[in-house]
């Protein structure tokens, strides 16, 4: 199958893993390409497995750990805002080769991140992006009507808070440092991290408030 020739066919998306349907054209394509590259010695099956394990080990929990540290340690927060990767590496989190810019939400400013051209995302820190981050509605509208998009996520901001949208178009990746919630004063870093959601680090929502 060539990719060109498949265009006229009825499209069948890959079935979810709990279905026993037949493979899609693209699942065959992936398997063929992977097997051939392995046979040519370009990489090994083991390399593929290790890459997937590494991917699976990355999740928003890593970002939440960074946010909780920044909430607890003002000097760390300053370093995080000045040099994202350097500060994250202090916590033993390797995000190479990502160049990370951390943007801080304040009483006057709310930040949110989008990639209108594709799906740039700090995946080495937060794991793979949610589907909506890669889809047309979010990519199209986040730069033009950010407040309407935020409202769809249940995030209503007063007019006095400026909305600053970051279109992640080139070599930088962005993480939002949310505001520390009211009522979280006595909490330790682990409890604080539990308040930090993936969406709050993309900037479409606010962190949870303490129970």
């Amino acid at each position: 199958m060539s990719v060109e020739h498949s265009h006229g066919h009825d499209h069948d998306h890959a079935p979810p893993p709990d279905q026993d349907g037949p493979w899609s054209d693209y699942q065959y394509l992936e398997t063929a390409v992977r097997e051939l590259l392995i046979e040519k010695g370009i990489f090994s099956n083991d390399d593929v497995r290790r890459m997937i394990e590494r991917m699976d080990s990355r999740s928003p929990a890593r970002g939440a750990q960074v946010v909780a540290k920044a909430w607890s340690d003002p000097a760390f927060k300053d370093r995080l805002l000045a040099d994202g990767r350097g500060a994250v590496e202090e916590l033993g989190i390797d995000i190479e080769p990502v160049r990370l810019i951390v943007v801080e939400n304040t009483a006057a400013e709310h930040n949110m991140v989008v990639c209108t051209l594709c799906s740039c995302y700090p995946r080495n820190l937060l794991g793979l992006p949610p589907d909506w981050y890669k889809a047309r509605a979010y990519r199209s509208r986040a730069v033009r009507e950010p407040r309407a998009v935020l409202a769809e996520f249940g995030t209503e901001l007063p007019d006095g808070v400026a909305v600053r949208v970051h279109d992640s178009t080139a070599d930088m990746r962005y993480m939002v440092l949310p505001r520390r919630p009211d009522g979280s004063e006595g909490l330790g870093e682990a409890e604080l991290a539990d308040l930090v959601t993936r969406d709050s680090m993309i900037g479409v929502s606010l962190p949870k408030t303490p129970a």
């Binding site: 033009r144 407040r147 600053r164 949208v165 178009t169 080139a170 930088m172």
Partner: peptide
């Protein structure tokens, strides 16, 4: 500047990486 019909507050902005 980007969208002349933008209805939100004047402080709202978009930042873009440009070569």
């Amino acid at each position: 500047e980007l969208w002349p019909d933008y209805a939100g507050p004047a402080g709202d902005c978009v930042e873009i990486e440009i070569y």
